[in-house]
């Protein structure tokens, strides 16, 4: 990956506290990291470790209590969408009143892309996601996997440089999930977006990421960072059979396991 000085995403001393009745709970505390252009980074941790909170602050959906965030050196301002940043939700959030093609083309419509170009780009994405023949279907008639693929394409079609993903495949069954990993890996191999991917699934993080940032149980802090030196392009089905995968898995699993135990005790 090319190192062009400035990091694509930089987070410094980020913290978030929520008030519950009289007491204040620190969900995230003193989180700092930086991500290179084109890097695929997974934020891994047990539930309640604040990884989604960090992502949502970077996405401008949540206001941080402390700290700063920068994308391309520009400060991230809460509640104001940052250009060239795409976001994929845990739920698919497809608009039920729009067809698959209309959902995917939504961002292009907002950007004022002419109809002909819009249709061409949507068609390309539909093909990529294996949704051919379902362009005019409404989300209510699609399976969970198809819906999430359409949601992914709605974020991809506008060609964002940064992709923020909040456990996007968390609700899918194992096979559908592996299918989605392949779709995502192919897109990333070609477009090389900078990706920040939140997950609690170590296997998923290993399959997709260049680097795994491990979060500790509440309050969410960065515990450790692991380079994932598995060769690219990767095959989501075959990768878990390789010895290097197994080696990394057991190493990170041990560290993650400590956090699970701590989280349970808390």
């Amino acid at each position: 990956m090319s190192e062009t000085g400035r990091p694509k995403i930089e987070v410094r001393g980020l913290g978030k506290s929520f008030r519950f009745g009289g007491s204040t709970i620190d969900a995230v505390d003193d989180v700092s990291f930086s991500i290179r252009r084109g890097e695929f980074v997974a934020l891994l941790g047990p539930s309640g470790s604040g990884k989604s909170t960090v992502l949502n602050m970077i996405a401008t959906l949540l206001e941080p209590s402390r700290g700063e965030m920068f994308i391309d050196g520009n400060r991230v301002i809460p509640h104001r969408a940052t250009p060239d940043v795409g976001y994929v939700f845990q739920r698919d959030t497809l608009f039920p009143w729009r067809t698959v093609a209309e959902n995917i083309g939504y961002g292009l419509e907002l950007a004022g892309v002419p109809k002909a170009e819009r249709e061409a780009r949507v068609a390309e994405c539909v093909a990529q996601a294996g949704l051919k023949g379902f362009e005019t279907a409404y989300p209510s008639s699609l399976s969970g996997g198809m819906r999430q693929r359409a949601a992914l394409m709605r974020a991809i079609v506008v060609r964002p440089q940064v992709l923020l993903m909040d456990e996007p495949f968390g609700a899918l069954d194992t096979h559908t999930k592996i299918d989605m990993h392949d779709v995502l890996l192919k897109i990333w191999d070609r477009e090389q977006q900078t990706v920040l991917f939140v997950t609690h699934d170590l296997g998923e993080a290993l399959t997709l990421a260049d680097r795994i940032i491990l979060f500790s149980a509440r309050p969410g802090r960065i515990k450790e960072s692991f380079e994932v030196d598995l060769p690219r392009p990767r095959d989501a089905v075959k990768l878990p059979e390789t010895p290097r995968y197994a080696e990394l898995f057991s190493r990170i699993w041990h560290s993650l396991g400590e956090e699970f135990v701590k989280g349970r005790a808390a």
């Binding site: 959906l61 795409g86 939504y106």
Partner: peptide, 14 residues
Amino acid sequence: VDEGFINTARLLGA
């Protein structure tokens, strides 16, 4: 109205 829909639209620049 589902906040998820509103956030989706806002993040896409609406």
